[in-house]
């Protein structure tokens, strides 16, 4: 046995080489398409670097001027607020509906028929391109679009409601679209987590006379926490990077009065003249904010495990 162990150790070294070879494609692709752009984004954020017409201005090193300009302007805080508000409008119903659906689907006593069909159907909206989905809603909710004509003809509204010209309705539309697109995905993730919970726990709880509400809050939720935290953090990052839906829905203007302008839409505005310095600085700020928030959420939601 001892001899065999020794031989095994030298083999490990040999096999390690293959590990690196198999890893190489990923590392190379990652470096070229992620790491290098990432570093150069940070690097260029310290430069004045944009185009005026066909003329290239810069790159001139200006240290932290881009950051100062961004943070001194109240607009960035407004766009941060917009982003969060729209994310919350979409995320709250999304997590509630997903939890509900996942617990129904995973509950063996309900024996829901056609589970596969429903799982597929609720996932379908995610397969549509966000841009196409936004375009669809843009047409549906246009000032003289079908929704407005129906509401007017049914006598609910006296005249067409300008969904895209009111802060509330425009934000709700964005949130609603994100909810529709992502609740299926979240359901599948949460369902996977719930299926992994040992059924003997449920059986024991039932024998002890626990109600289904008690089972959900005392067994399902605590056992689900790792997946739940994962969903929360990925959704938070996705929410901070919200772009395509509001961009298409508002023609990139963040109308009305820039109240649906998200941080990434703001970044996109700087690409009109290829202002790599300013957009780089904005990306770095976004990276820091995302990092801090993800860390905070992680710490907050996993704290109780170490009591």
């Amino acid at each position: 046995m001892d001899g065999g162990k020794k031989k095994g150790n030298s083999n490990v070294v040999k096999y390690n080489k293959w590990g690196y070879i198999f890893l190489a494609p990923f590392i190379i692709v990652y470096s070229v398409f992620q790491l290098i752009p990432f570093i150069s984004t940070i690097y260029y954020s310290f430069f004045e670097n944009y185009r005026s017409g066909l003329k290239q201005i810069g790159p001139n090193f200006i240290a932290l001027e881009n950051y100062k300009a961004l943070l001194a302007n109240a607009d960035i805080w407004k766009y941060t607020e917009n982003t969060f508000v729209m994310w919350i409008i979409g995320f709250v119903p999304q997590i509630v509906v997903s939890l509900l659906l996942a617990s129904w689907f995973s509950d063996p006593s309900l024996r829901i028929k056609g589970q596969r069909f429903f799982k597929t159907v609720i996932y379908l909206p995610n397969l549509i391109m966000a841009a196409a989905f936004a375009m669809l809603f843009f047409t549906l909710f246009a000032d003289s679009g079908p929704i407005n004509s129906m509401l007017v003809q049914a006598g609910i509204l006296a005249e067409p409601y300008k969904f895209m010209s009111n802060t509330g309705s425009a934000r709700i539309l964005v949130g609603f679209m994100n909810f529709l697109m992502w609740f299926g995905n979240t359901t599948i993730l949460l369902l996977a987590g719930m299926m992994g919970i040992d059924t003997s726990l449920y059986e024991a709880a039932e024998v002890d006379g626990a109600t289904s509400t008690q089972i959900f809050w005392r067994i399902t939720m605590p056992m689900l926490r790792p997946i739940f935290v994962f969903v929360l953090i990925t959704s938070l990052i996705g929410g901070l990077q919200m772009f395509d839906v509001p961009q298409i829905l508002t023609n990139g203007e963040g109308a009305p009065d820039r109240t649906t302008m998200t941080l990434i839409m703001y970044l996109n505005k700087h690409l009109f003249n290829k202002n790599y310095g300013m957009s780089g600085a904005l990306s770095v700020i976004l990276l820091i904010v995302t990092g801090i928030l993800s860390f905070a959420v992680y710490r907050f939601t996993t704290k109780q495990e170490s009591y």
Partner: peptide, 24 residues
């Protein structure tokens, strides 16, 4: 025009937007 902001705010938004397009 839609009464969401006053004229001064609209002009300010215009200026912000132009600044984004042409920093010079």
């Amino acid at each position: 025009f839609e009464g969401k902001v006053d004229y001064d705010k609209a002009i300010a938004n215009f200026q912000t937007s132009v600044k984004e397009k042409y920093p010079e």
